[in-house]
Nucleic acid binder design. Structure first.
Lengths: 336, 336
DNA sequence: GTGAAAGCGCTAACAA
DNA sequence: TTGTTAGCGCTTTCAC
């Protein structure tokens, strides 16, 4: 990489002259500016990012810590973050916590050494289970702002972007009830997560509010075979006429399982699930999907962080929690 | 962040003493080392990464440029890269080219300013179509090594990690023929990609080698509705008794479509597809999957790059191309 | 055993 | 209009 020093030497001027010329300083003569810029162009000069970061004490880099990159929702959020951050000239360093508290702590520590200006993260499963929040506080005390999305630690004071999980399943279940469904099941493979619990509560509330409706809940652990579990659940509960799924795979598998047992969707069973466009097409009929607008969640998280980074800390910006409402995209897996 | 300077001041020693003490230099007295380390511990001192990078002229950061983070295969490779890179103390900066040549160029340029020590990338669709390679060469000329994976630019001399695409579909098609299938279709939504073309060629070779077998090819463009296209393809070609899919969704949808048309899988139709474990479970029966070992691809790419970064350029390391063989994971979507 | 000083690449206050 | 200098945080050579 060519440096200011080399340009200066070749042009027989001082380093600062070159620097100023390239930054269009008014101090420098037109002729000089032209000469400098031409040579810089010729050598494809780019200011060294590391030196700039050191000088300006900021990196224009955001640390993103997500629990699982293979989760389609999280990948989509990451996409949203990346795109939005780029707009404002930020790069992102990605760390994957693998749902582990230890890895989450490490990533936070490792990047809190001047590598990034702040963090966007989704709390790992283990962290949520152990309800550990010290590492977040420590990082923030070091002057690095954090924005949490989706799974958040409520006891940490920071910006947050969340989904209306409770409402989504509450309203989703009610929609099935409005179709006349009497035996509505809830299937989830994210039982341990805060959002999973909220979704379950939404379902429960809707069921309990109706007289004579029973709770039919299937929880699938990470290691288990979803397809197998759902099949036997359907076998044991032949009267199921509606399904609401808390994750993207379960809904699709539920439809396919119904077909497998010669039960027509949506004539015999209606199915709704949290899902993205691409996954919901993996069943016939297509799954009626509760969309979480993952990209928008990512974009919002990035905005919140960048706003904070650009605000002088003296201004004492209040922490905000942004709720991104889900949307139901209906398809032929429900009656109406 | 606390700096050496602050520690030095508080301890009434010089900055260099503190630095040496923390690095266990033999020059420094035992007592001093102890004092320094205690204070550093107390203040949770971490050497500033940016300053180190500037000093040592390397960042321990790898730039990863992928065309699409929502592609499950690519996300998995990214996961593999991240994990392997972390082992060696490298962080990764992720850029998403969105299949655009322009964005790919930009990302390369933007990070080639000292932000990263090298690149791992998968060539974007547009880049492949236009057969543009100047930006890769330029980057390498700037002293930044590149490792390409999956979709590679053959005319660029660099390390590569690829899949045996041709062989996979060739052998896959042969496997279907060995089951007695006579009307085997090839379905692909990645027709424009180098790997897509290779997979098609593998299929064609196997078909052409058999007398009396016809080519049945369905190509789905990005914007099109896969489910719809596959449905009408099946309608128009009622005699299809085998399917080999070049991407992860098509295989799953093919099975579901067959079921929809009351055709038993695998009795009437056998289906094989490039897919991952999670996606292949989205159909009943589960899709017989050609696994690409995405994580291993990522890990290998990271290894190749890091090896090159650690090798003095004087050593003139040869460029290598690593082929990761696919594996077929059979399930009940084929006869045997 | 400890410290001063130079230098990585850059910007900016100040001097000329 | 241009140049000198200091300094961001760190390592390392060379003096003391």
């Amino acid at each position: 990489m060519v440096t200011l020093k080399q340009l200066a030497k070749e042009l027989n001027v001082s380093i600062s002259t070159v620097s100023k010329a390239l930054n269009n300083s008014e101090e420098i003569g037109e002729e000089t500016i032209k000469r400098v810029k031409e040579l810089a162009e010729l050598y494809n000069y780019k200011p060294n990012k590391v030196a700039l970061s050191l000088k300006q004490n900021k990196t224009n880099t955001i640390g993103v810590i997500i629990p699982d990159i293979l989760n389609h929702f999280l990948a989509k959020v990451l996409f949203g973050i990346e795109r939005e951050a780029n707009k404002y000239g930020y790069n992102i360093i990605t760390c994957i916590s693998n749902e582990s508290l230890e890895k989450e702590k490490n990533s936070l520590q490792l990047l809190a050494n001047g590598s990034v200006d702040g963090f966007i993260l989704c709390v790992s499963q283990e962290t949520q289970m152990k309800n550990e929040i010290q590492h977040f506080k420590k990082t923030m005390n070091q002057g690095l702002p954090i924005v949490m999305f989706d799974r958040v630690a409520h006891d940490v004071m920071c910006d947050k972007v969340i989904v209306d999980d409770f409402d989504s399943t509450y309203r989703g279940t009610q929609a099935l009830q409005a179709e006349g469904r009497k035996h509505i099941a809830f299937i989830s493979n994210i039982d341990e997560l805060s959002v999973g619990k909220l979704r379950e509560r939404g379902y429960k509330k809707a069921i309990i509010e109706q007289a004579n409706q029973e709770l039919l809940i299937l929880k699938i652990a990470n290691a288990e075979d979803s397809q197998q579990k759902i099949k036997s659940f359907f076998k044991q509960n032949k009267h199921i006429d509606g399904v609401i799924a808390a994750d993207s795979a379960s809904g699709v598998i539920a439809i396919n399982t119904a077909a497998h047992y010669k039960r027509k969707v949506p004539k015999d069973i209606s199915v709704i699930g949290f899902s993205s466009k691409s996954i919901s097409g993996h069943s016939i009929p297509r799954l009626t999907a509760i969309r979480q607008h993952a990209k928008r969640i990512g974009a919002n998280a990035a905005q919140l962080l960048i706003r904070r980074l650009k605000t002088p800390s003296s201004e004492n910006l209040d922490f905000s929690t942004k709720i991104i409402k889900t949307t139901v995209v209906k398809s032929k897996s429900v009656l109406r």
